[in-house]
Design a protein around this nucleic acid. Structure first.
Length: 118
DNA sequence: CTGGTGACTTATC
DNA sequence: AGATAAGCCACCA
């Protein structure tokens, strides 16, 4: 049994389309907790393996990979590039082009889906 | 209950 | 641009 917030975050991450990325804070905000970026981190830690999450599509607010080089940075970059996401000179993703920005209706639909799963 | 912990974010220098 | 500090909050021991 997960908290509603956790279930919502998981569904939101699952809903990130291929070729797009989302930010930690953005996911948290969609799940109703604008300051909950660290919760998203924790959920990725605990659920990325077991929940089949596209964890590579979550980056920090600068559009950069948050992982340390020894934690899988290269793996993440490779997966994103394979989806068509481009990295700039300083390994930065252009959020203007690649940030996932669902409509409020989409978000509501996803959150609804999370609710059904409990 | 208390304190520690993050793949974060914001403010400040 | 880079470093530092403080804020953040659900979870866990």
């Amino acid at each position: 049994m997960r908290s509603p917030f956790t279930a919502q975050v998981i569904e939101l991450i699952r809903a990130i389309p291929e070729g797009k990325v989302a930010t930690y804070g953005g996911i948290a905000a969609m799940a109703g907790s604008p300051r909950g970026a660290r919760q998203v981190v924790r959920i990725l830690h605990t659920c990325s393996r077991t929940e089949n999450l596209p964890w590579q599509r979550v980056v920090n607010r600068e559009g950069k990979i948050a992982l340390k080089p020894f934690q899988g940075y290269e793996e993440q970059q490779a997966m994103l590039e394979a989806e068509g996401i481009e990295f700039g000179l300083s390994s930065t993703i252009d959020l203007q082009h690649f940030l996932w920005q669902p409509s409020s209706e989409e978000i509501a639909s996803i959150l609804n889906m999370a609710e059904r799963q409990t």
